[in-house]
Protein backbone atom coordinates (compact mmCIF):
# COMPACT_ATOMS: atom_id res chain seq x y z
CA UNK A 1 0.00 0.00 0.00
CA UNK A 2 1.37 3.35 -0.87
CA UNK A 3 0.40 6.69 0.50
CA UNK A 4 2.48 8.75 -1.80
CA UNK A 5 -0.53 9.63 -3.84
CA UNK A 6 -2.11 11.16 -0.73
CA UNK A 7 0.84 12.74 0.95
CA UNK A 8 1.67 16.33 0.12
CA UNK A 9 4.83 17.71 1.59
CA UNK A 10 4.29 20.10 4.50
CA UNK A 11 0.71 18.99 4.87
CA UNK A 12 -0.23 16.78 7.74
CA UNK A 13 -1.47 13.37 6.76
CA UNK A 14 -3.00 12.19 9.99
CA UNK A 15 -4.18 8.69 10.45
CA UNK A 16 -7.61 8.73 12.04
CA UNK A 17 -8.80 5.58 13.61
CA UNK A 18 -12.49 4.77 13.43
CA UNK A 19 -14.00 3.52 16.63
CA UNK A 20 -15.36 0.05 15.93
CA UNK A 21 -18.91 -0.82 16.92
CA UNK A 22 -17.37 -3.46 19.14
CA UNK A 23 -15.30 -0.99 21.11
CA UNK A 24 -17.00 -2.04 24.33
CA UNK A 25 -15.64 -5.56 24.01
CA UNK A 26 -12.09 -4.29 23.88
CA UNK A 27 -11.68 -4.23 27.62
CA UNK A 28 -13.65 -5.68 30.48
CA UNK A 29 -14.01 -2.25 32.02
CA UNK A 30 -15.83 -0.92 28.97
CA UNK A 31 -17.95 -4.05 28.85
CA UNK A 32 -18.91 -3.52 32.45
CA UNK A 33 -19.90 0.03 31.63
CA UNK A 34 -22.09 -1.02 28.72
CA UNK A 35 -23.69 -3.70 30.89
CA UNK A 36 -24.42 -1.08 33.52
CA UNK A 37 -26.09 1.04 30.88
CA UNK A 38 -28.10 -1.94 29.61
CA UNK A 39 -29.26 -2.91 33.06
CA UNK A 40 -31.34 0.23 33.18
CA UNK A 41 -33.75 -1.62 30.90
CA UNK A 42 -34.37 -4.06 33.73
CA UNK A 43 -34.79 -1.29 36.22
CA UNK A 44 -37.47 0.06 33.92
CA UNK A 45 -38.97 -3.42 33.68
CA UNK A 46 -39.45 -3.54 37.45
CA UNK A 47 -40.93 -0.09 37.45
CA UNK A 48 -43.49 -1.10 34.83
CA UNK A 49 -44.37 -4.28 36.73
CA UNK A 50 -44.92 -2.28 39.87
CA UNK A 51 -47.20 0.15 38.06
CA UNK A 52 -49.17 -2.75 36.71
CA UNK A 53 -49.43 -4.22 40.15
CA UNK A 54 -50.79 -0.94 41.46
CA UNK A 55 -53.39 -0.81 38.71
CA UNK A 56 -54.46 -4.37 39.48
CA UNK A 57 -54.79 -3.38 43.12
CA UNK A 58 -56.99 -0.45 42.19
CA UNK A 59 -59.11 -2.66 39.93
CA UNK A 60 -60.20 -4.81 42.89
CA UNK A 61 -59.31 -8.12 44.57
CA UNK A 62 -60.20 -10.24 41.58
CA UNK A 63 -57.96 -8.42 39.18
CA UNK A 64 -55.19 -8.57 41.74
CA UNK A 65 -55.39 -12.34 42.23
CA UNK A 66 -55.30 -12.76 38.52
CA UNK A 67 -52.27 -10.54 38.29
CA UNK A 68 -50.49 -12.49 41.01
CA UNK A 69 -51.33 -15.76 39.32
CA UNK A 70 -49.84 -14.42 36.10
CA UNK A 71 -46.64 -13.59 37.95
CA UNK A 72 -46.27 -17.17 39.08
CA UNK A 73 -45.86 -18.59 35.60
CA UNK A 74 -42.41 -20.12 35.36
CA UNK A 75 -41.13 -18.11 32.36
CA UNK A 76 -41.99 -14.92 34.20
CA UNK A 77 -40.26 -16.15 37.36
CA UNK A 78 -37.17 -16.83 35.28
CA UNK A 79 -37.34 -13.38 33.75
CA UNK A 80 -37.68 -11.92 37.22
CA UNK A 81 -34.64 -13.84 38.39
CA UNK A 82 -32.51 -12.49 35.56
CA UNK A 83 -33.89 -9.00 35.98
CA UNK A 84 -33.13 -9.11 39.68
CA UNK A 85 -29.49 -9.99 39.00
CA UNK A 86 -29.15 -7.13 36.56
CA UNK A 87 -30.77 -4.65 38.89
CA UNK A 88 -28.43 -5.82 41.61
CA UNK A 89 -25.52 -5.17 39.30
CA UNK A 90 -26.97 -1.78 38.46
CA UNK A 91 -27.39 -0.72 42.07
CA UNK A 92 -23.97 -1.92 43.12
CA UNK A 93 -22.20 -0.17 40.28
CA UNK A 94 -24.11 3.03 41.02
CA UNK A 95 -23.30 2.87 44.70
CA UNK A 96 -19.66 2.75 43.80
CA UNK A 97 -20.03 5.78 41.58
CA UNK A 98 -21.95 7.80 44.13
CA UNK A 99 -18.90 9.36 45.82
CA UNK A 100 -17.83 10.80 42.47
CA UNK A 101 -21.06 12.69 41.98
CA UNK A 102 -21.46 13.77 45.58
CA UNK A 103 -18.55 15.33 47.33
CA UNK A 104 -19.40 15.73 50.98
CA UNK A 105 -17.33 17.79 53.33
CA UNK A 106 -17.27 17.51 57.07
CA UNK A 107 -15.32 20.15 58.97
CA UNK A 108 -13.39 21.12 55.86
CA UNK A 109 -12.23 17.58 55.14
CA UNK A 110 -13.56 15.56 52.26
CA UNK A 111 -15.54 12.55 53.42
CA UNK A 112 -13.67 9.50 52.12
CA UNK A 113 -15.27 7.59 49.25
CA UNK A 114 -15.74 4.39 51.20
CA UNK A 115 -17.87 6.17 53.78
CA UNK A 116 -20.25 7.40 51.11
CA UNK A 117 -20.41 3.99 49.47
CA UNK A 118 -20.94 2.45 52.91
CA UNK A 119 -23.79 4.85 53.66
CA UNK A 120 -25.48 3.84 50.44
CA UNK A 121 -25.23 0.15 51.31
CA UNK A 122 -26.46 0.92 54.79
CA UNK A 123 -29.52 2.75 53.49
CA UNK A 124 -30.17 -0.12 51.13
CA UNK A 125 -30.01 -2.67 53.94
CA UNK A 126 -32.39 -0.66 56.08
CA UNK A 127 -34.85 -0.26 53.21
CA UNK A 128 -34.73 -3.93 52.27
CA UNK A 129 -35.01 -4.92 55.93
CA UNK A 130 -38.09 -2.76 56.41
CA UNK A 131 -39.77 -4.17 53.35
CA UNK A 132 -38.90 -7.73 54.33
CA UNK A 133 -40.35 -7.09 57.77
CA UNK A 134 -43.52 -5.61 56.32
CA UNK A 135 -43.99 -8.58 54.01
CA UNK A 136 -42.97 -11.41 56.27
CA UNK A 137 -44.36 -10.35 59.64
CA UNK A 138 -47.72 -12.00 58.95
Amino acid sequence: MSAEAHYTRYHPQWYRRRVSVWWWLQSWRYTKFVLRELTSVFVAFFAVITLWQLRALVDGPQAYTQFVRGLKSSPLVAVHGVAFLFVLFHSISWFHLAPKAMVMRLRGKRVPDWVIVGLNYFAWLIASGTIAWLLLRG
Partner: peptide
Protein backbone atom coordinates in the same frame (compact mmCIF):
# COMPACT_ATOMS: atom_id res chain seq x y z
CA UNK B 1 -20.88 11.96 29.46
CA UNK B 2 -22.56 8.73 30.45
CA UNK B 3 -20.22 8.18 33.34
CA UNK B 4 -17.91 5.49 32.09
CA UNK B 5 -15.57 6.57 34.87
CA UNK B 6 -12.43 5.38 33.07
CA UNK B 7 -10.96 8.90 32.90
CA UNK B 8 -10.62 9.00 36.65
CA UNK B 9 -9.09 5.53 36.77
CA UNK B 10 -6.32 6.31 34.30
CA UNK B 11 -5.52 9.81 35.56
CA UNK B 12 -1.93 9.78 36.85
CA UNK B 13 -2.48 12.86 39.04
CA UNK B 14 -5.71 11.88 40.82
CA UNK B 15 -7.57 14.76 39.28
CA UNK B 16 -10.84 12.81 39.16
CA UNK B 17 -12.33 14.35 36.04
CA UNK B 18 -15.33 12.00 36.25
CA UNK B 19 -16.08 13.49 39.64
CA UNK B 20 -15.82 16.99 38.21
CA UNK B 21 -18.31 16.13 35.48
CA UNK B 22 -20.80 14.50 37.83
CA UNK B 23 -20.62 17.39 40.24
CA UNK B 24 -21.15 19.78 37.41
CA UNK B 25 -24.18 17.81 36.23
CA UNK B 26 -25.84 18.63 39.54
Amino acid sequence: CTFVGECTKVCPKNVDPAGAIQQYKL
